[in-house]
Structure formats: C-alpha cells, structure tokens
Simulated scan of single mutants.
Amino acid sequence: MTLTSVSPDHRLDVTELVDRAARYAAEVDGSRRLRRESVAALVEAEFPRHFVPSRWGGAAGGFAPLVEAAITVGESCPSTAWCATLFAAHGRIAAYLPEQAREEIWGSGPDTLISASVMPPSGRATPVPGGWLLRGEWGRASGVDFADWVLLASTVPDGDGETVRIFAVPSGDFVVEDTWQAAGMRGTGTNTVVLCDTFVPEHRTVALPELLGTRSARQARCHNVPYTLVAAVMFAAPLVGAALGAVAECVSTRAARLSPDPDARQALARSSPEASAARLLLREAADRADRGMVDARTVAQNRCDAAAAAELCVSAVDRLFAACGGHGLAEDDPVQRRWRDVHTGAGHGALRFAPAADAYAKALLGLG
C-alpha cells in the first residue's frame, strides 16, 4: 500500500540534552533513574511532542529525525536516549485514542510525558458501565517516575474470543513500584505500575489491532503506518548511539591504553564500521517508514534490519569491552556501561533476530 501523506521534517535540537546526558550519565546509571534536569532538557528538545498530532500543537514528525536524534543522545547516555525516544513513541500510540482522551492528555499542551507497558499485556480489565476496572501489575514502564500518563495493555473479552486493549491512566490513578534492577539501561527507571480496581472510562481505551494497520490517508504519515513497521527501529536507535559512544570513548580517552596492543587496535578498527553499519541500517529503515511503500515485506524488512542493527551493536561493544582488559572492569567504566546498556536493550523482544529474520525470509520468498 502506498501512503502519500509525508510527515513534516521536524528536527529535534538535542544540543542541551546531549550536554546533560553526558554530564549525568554515570550518576543516572547509579541512581537508576534520570535527573529532572535531563527530563526537562528532553522536553525542551521536543521529544514528547514529536508525534503528537498538530491539532494539539504537536509536530506530527517523521521517524528519520527521531532516530537520528536518539542515536546522537545515545552516544552520551543510552538511558536518556531510551526514555526520550519512548516518550515520543508513546505519544504516537496515544494519538490512536478517541478524541476526548486526546483532549484530556494534550489539551493544556503537547509536552505531556507518557510512559507505557503494553507488551506483553498484563493485569485484568473488567468491563463495567461506562468503561473498565483495571487491577494488577504492569512491569517495565520506562521513565514512569516522571510520567503524566501511562498506557497499559490487558487482554479483554471480544465476542467469542479475546483481544488486547490499551488503557490511558493519569498519574494520580496509579502507583509506581521500584523494581528496576537490571544490569544495563539502569537510568531508564523502567519500573512497575500497580493499579487496584481503577476505573478507566471507555473513551480512554483503544483496541491494539488498530495500531497494527494503516489508517485514513487524511492522517499524518506518522499516524498512518503500522506499529510493527516502526517499533523495533525506535528501540534500536539508543543502542546504536551506545555502540558509537563506545567507539568514540576508545578513540579519545582510551587511545593510550589501546595503542600499544595491535589486537586492541584491530578490535577498534572492526567495531567502528560495525557501529556505523548499524546506523546506516536504521537510517534506511526510518526513511522507509517515512516515505516508502507499506506492505508485509517492508514491515518484515524494517523489523529484521533493526534486529540486525542491534546484533551489530552487541558485536561492536563486546569486542571493545574485551579490548579494554582490566581497565574496563570498574563498574563506572564508560565502555563497560555502554556494553551493559547494549546487551540489556538488545534483549527487548522487538529486537530478537531469529523471529525477525524468519519473517523477513518468508516475505522475500513469498511464503505468507
């Protein structure tokens, strides 16, 4: 299917955010959450409004500018880049909600911070007059400590079967439990959301299948492509930044450590083009999302390219971490931190290479 509505080329000015990300990278890794200064800077850089519909003052921007900005920020602090990217991505999901909910979320401005826990669906949603009662726990909601709203997914009855619905819940209606104890991406504060029979009106819900197809051509391009075309691409962008940052760290402050060892220099020479190749893969995937034909093959290709980019990042940081030897074993070592971040981010289900590669090969071979 050819989509002709192309998003505006909204650019995100990340200059101040990069400075703060670099300044606080070690601190946020230790505290397991971003500093408020960094959150303020990502708002100033206009990440939260990047995909917000223009009707509410948003940019309805493209995927290529977001990916490039996320990579740039990720070179300094992958956790900051991860949260910034997801605040943007969750605004895109919220744009599928009914208009009354969008008015509630963005009526006072487009810079609302939205966290989410939608995969896998969790908790229990019980239909009641006028809406739903939500109860349960939803894990891994990045940046939720700073969120104004959270999007939560649950499996619900649908005729003779089931479907998944996404529910928008304001910050006063949920509790955050501090559960994020991961090896990497520590600063993302990817904690758990808890609800106990919280009422969500019908107008604050949307069925997940609506995100998986295309919509009316009257919609902005960014709101008219399937979730599966772009999700993995956005998840991979901070990892590419982390790998490029590890290369840059070895080139600058670690030059004296690496230069006497030819094996270490070869590791740097191999890892640098791997990280650059990952960046090129994401740039092409983002451009397809902004301007290309949307069909099953393109969706499979974008998903596979993003997973391949993540694998390249893993390979690059593994080699650099090994090349650092004993110098890289300190917990606050900047290369080790990026090594932990890349491995943690690459563990996301959207970036698993085997299923992505199988789906793409089937699409190429016309196997359904």
Rank of each mutant, 00 (worst) to 15 (best):
E249Y: 02
S115T: 07
A88I: 02
A59S: 15
A182G: 11
G136C: 01
I114D: 03
V240H: 01
P170R: 07
E202M: 06
R33D: 10
A89D: 11
A236I: 06
L66Q: 09
G345M: 03
S154V: 08
A26R: 14
D305C: 10
D290V: 02
A21G: 15
D19A: 15
V299F: 09
W132A: 09
F199S: 03
S272C: 12
H203N: 13
A116F: 00
D341C: 05
F321I: 00
D261A: 09
F174D: 03
A101C: 13
L12N: 13
R165I: 00
A350V: 14
F47L: 14
L17P: 11
W132H: 07
Q301V: 12
A359D: 13
P209K: 09
E162L: 09
A255L: 10
G159M: 05
A308Y: 01
A243L: 03
A285D: 04
D29C: 07
R265L: 15
V14G: 09
M185T: 01
D160K: 10
T4E: 15
R297N: 05
T126E: 14
F63T: 14
S31E: 14
S315F: 04
T198S: 12
G130P: 08
M119D: 15
G349I: 08
W82L: 10
L151P: 07
R319P: 00
G368M: 05
S271A: 15
H327S: 14
A183H: 06
R218F: 11
F199C: 03
M119I: 13
I71E: 14
V233I: 14
R257C: 02
A275Y: 07
Q301A: 15
L152T: 04
S315C: 12
Q100W: 01
L258G: 04
A306M: 08
A264P: 02
S76T: 09
A25K: 11
V43F: 05
L208M: 13
M1Y: 12
L17I: 11
A267W: 03
R352N: 10
C304E: 13
D341A: 10
D178W: 05
C324E: 12
A207M: 09
A220C: 03
E16K: 12
G328N: 08
V335E: 02
L268C: 07
R55K: 15
V335G: 03
F174T: 02
P355D: 03
D9G: 08
A125Q: 08
S154H: 04
P129N: 12
V225T: 14
G189H: 08
G61N: 10
I105L: 14
G347M: 07
G109Y: 05
V225I: 15
R221T: 12
G326Y: 01
R218L: 12
V156E: 06
S7G: 11
A88F: 04
F87V: 03
R338I: 00
R352D: 13
G139Q: 13
